[in-house]
């Protein structure tokens, strides 16, 4: 790979002042290093932020919200008992992503900022507007697992993160520090839609660093009815064809409040506020969920005109809502986020 400066700042201030155009932050490195190897990313400087102090904590703040340091590892967060009890669909989403080894290394902030897995973005020889503005889009002629919402003629890539989908449903925010000081960005606004500038794949300004994520206290109120469902081509270590985070607050047999977001359908997790509104005050049942899913995905369309992914997204949304209505399981299933649940018998081979 291209030669680069490797910088290991000891403090956040040092990190911020070390940043310069062409530099990249290094967290777990599970995405950046791969892209440096293929040549899709060629930073002049890599700034290793994993030594920055104080960013590896999971804290409950006085107002009941939860603050997750940027460097907390995906596995650490998913396996934190208190966190998983309060935000079960976030833990389930985390455990459905990547592999055990990757989750041990990947950081939560890195997860939010990971790049699309569109194969044309990852390969420098391919034409990609996201990587090389104005170059064209090879994916358009071979869409595969592309976006069905919010795409443009410039880019049809999807955001691959599982973790971000329930975060968006639960209105998480990112605490960001940059040359201009601190600010907060809703996780839902972190990834812009491509429009005519797909190369702008983050709302972060150059040199800004995510220091923490925060889940509001209200997000805890969904804990009894919250699921993440991920449809994929193999049982583990595969990106979603479609996924959904569904959370319901059920009071007196009626849906007091609903949250729903889809993954793998757009350049960002796609929250369905309209669907949430449609369900409020209604009794949770499969017919309602099917009706809601049908309505909110009416505007979806795929670049190649194929229907299967839209059907799949709709079915996934409806099923995730049904699973949430049935109640959060006491333990995260052995196959997290799988439609196959826990009823698979033990293997006969020992």
């Amino acid at each position: 790979m291209k030669l680069f400066d490797f910088i290991q700042p000891a403090t956040i201030d040092e990190a911020l002042s070390a940043w310069r155009p062409g530099a990249a932050w290094l967290g777990g490195g599970t995405n950046l290093v791969d892209l440096m190897k293929t040549g899709a990313m060629q930073p002049d400087a890599v700034i290793d932020i994993t030594r920055l102090p104080g960013l590896d904590r999971i804290e409950t703040l006085p107002d009941g919200s939860t603050r997750i340091g940027a460097l907390v590892r995906n596995a650490t967060l998913a396996h934190d008992r208190d966190f998983a009890a309060a935000y079960p669909m976030v833990a389930e989403a985390l455990l459905s992503g990547a592999s055990g080894q990757l989750r041990n290394v990947a950081t939560v902030a890195g997860n939010l900022l990971q790049k699309t897995r569109c194969p044309f973005f990852q390969e420098p020889a391919a034409l990609c507007n996201r990587r090389d503005p104005g170059a064209g889009c090879d994916a358009m002629a071979a869409p595969g697992n592309s976006a069905i919402l919010g795409w443009s003629d410039a880019c049809i890539a999807t955001n691959p993160s599982d973790f971000t989908v329930p975060l968006v449903a639960l209105e998480a925010v990112a605490e960001v520090r940059g040359p201009q000081g601190m600010r907060e960005i809703a996780v839902a606004d972190l990834q812009p839609l491509p429009g005519s500038t797909p190369e702008r794949d983050t709302a972060l300004e150059p040199g800004e660093l995510i220091l923490a994520l925060r889940l509001p206290a209200r997000a805890r109120s969904f804990a009894a009815h919250a699921r993440y469902l991920k449809v994929r081509e193999r049982t583990s270590f595969a990106f979603a064809l479609a996924s959904a985070a569904a959370a319901l607050r059920i009071e007196g047999g009626l849906i007091a409040e609903a949250r729903l977001a889809l993954g793998a359908v757009a350049a960002k997790p796609w929250r369905l506020a309209e669907a949430e509104a449609m369900m409020t005050g209604k009794a949770p049942d499969a017919a309602l969920f099917a009706e809601v899913a049908e309505a909110v995905l009416a505007m979806a369309n795929s670049p190649d005109g194929q229907k299967w992914k839209i059907d799949l997204a709709r079915n996934t949304a409806a099923r995730a809502l049904s699973m949430a209505a049935a109640g959060t399981p006491a333990r995260i299933p052995a196959l997290p986020a799988s439609p196959f649940g826990t009823r698979i018998e033990d293997p006969q081979h020992v």
Binding site: T235, S236, L335, P347, H349
Partner: peptide
Amino acid sequence: AGYHVPVNADVHGFE
């Protein structure tokens, strides 16, 4: 990552 072969979780109840 893109060229799929089964993972351990796919291999179940084989004899």
